[in-house]
């Protein structure tokens, strides 16, 4: 189990996040399909969770008291796989099998194939409901583990997302923490021109969530929000994390075109240069 360090080594988290971003680029390039934009935007949130806040243990992945994470925006699976691999839950070499026939790393995470994934997600608006169910289960069992659900902002257009959020508020699930990867873009363009979700923080508050708004790429802010969420005793927490789609890759940042498109070889190599060091990639 990872102990919470007294002093947070932000530089170390940033270095880990950079490695995860490099994996996302390699994985989606080699797979020839996938969702780099929203994987890159959620990377820092996942890094903060898996490498600092969550009580998890690679030696005991089914430890009953572990904190749970449900990636409700299941298309960011490459980021989740890479984070799990760097945290010791699966071999790093396996990352490059993403989306290949026979791979455990499905395009959207499948717990049947990769049991360390808490819940299979992919179709939006469902992971959040499963997270609420997991928090109910924990309460019934008398466990105090946290359940984290990561929502996409396009996903906030889905009615069932709000059904599940309503239930989390109604049941006052203080162990439920909802993180919104608010990168502002969905497949076809900006959320606010397609179907606006603002004022999103007010909506969470209206659904009885203690809500904070942070910069989703600023580790001190993320860690502080997560620490506060863990202290909650009277209801669920929502963390609205303002992020940048394609974060870290200059030509992907803020472009909805990179929601569901893999980079070419040349683009992937440019991206890796952006992310700290150039690297030559094999042909796809």
């Amino acid at each position: 189990m990872m102990e919470s360090p007294g002093r947070v080594d932000v530089a170390s988290l940033e270095a880990t996040a950079r490695e995860i971003r490099r994996d996302i680029v390699r994985m989606t390039y080699l797979a020839g399909s996938g969702h780099p934009g929203g994987s890159l935007s959620v990377t820092d949130l996942l890094t903060a969770l898996l490498f600092h806040e969550m009580k998890i243990d690679p030696a005991r992945p089914d430890w009953p008291d572990r904190d749970r994470l449900v990636l409700s925006k299941g298309h960011a699976a490459p980021a989740l796989y890479s984070a799990l691999a760097h945290r010791g839950f699966l071999p790093k070499e396996e990352l490059l099998t993403l989306r290949r026939l026979g791979s455990r790393l499905q395009g959207h995470a499948d717990r049947g194939k990769l049991p360390v994934v808490e819940a299979s997600t992919g179709c939006l608006g469902q992971g959040i409901g499963m997270a609420v169910g997991m928090a109910l289960d924990a309460r019934l069992a008398g466990r105090t583990n946290l359940v984290y659900a990561i929502l996409g902002d396009g996903e906030c257009q889905a009615g069932p997302t709000w059904e599940a959020l309503m239930a989390g508020g109604h049941f006052r699930l203080s162990r439920l923490v909802v993180l919104l990867d608010r990168n502002g873009l969905e497949t076809d363009g900006p959320t606010e021109t397609i179907m606006g979700i603002e004022p999103i923080a007010d909506k969470f508050r209206a659904f009885r969530y203690r809500t904070v708004e942070i910069d989703g790429h600023n580790f001190p802010q993320i860690l502080s929000a997560l620490a506060e969420a863990r202290r909650s005793t009277d209801g669920p927490t929502a963390i609205v994390a303002r992020t940048v789609k394609g974060k870290g890759v200059s030509f992907m940042e803020g472009k909805s075109a990179w929601h569901g498109k893999p980079p070419s070889k040349a683009e992937a190599e440019r991206a890796l240069a952006d992310l700290g060091a150039p690297e030559e990639l094999p042909a796809r």
């Binding site: 819940a119 469902q126 409901g129 499963m130 997991m134 928090a135 109910l136 019934l140």
Partner: peptide, 26 residues
């Protein structure tokens, strides 16, 4: 009453919540 959840008119999410509860072994 402690093990019964009447969740109102949200059948899709009832299924997700039921799944989430069951994944803990119930």
């Amino acid at each position: 009453p402690d093990r019964f959840f009447n969740v109102g008119v949200m059948e899709p999410t009832m299924m997700s919540m039921a799944a989430g509860v069951s994944l803990g072994g119930r």
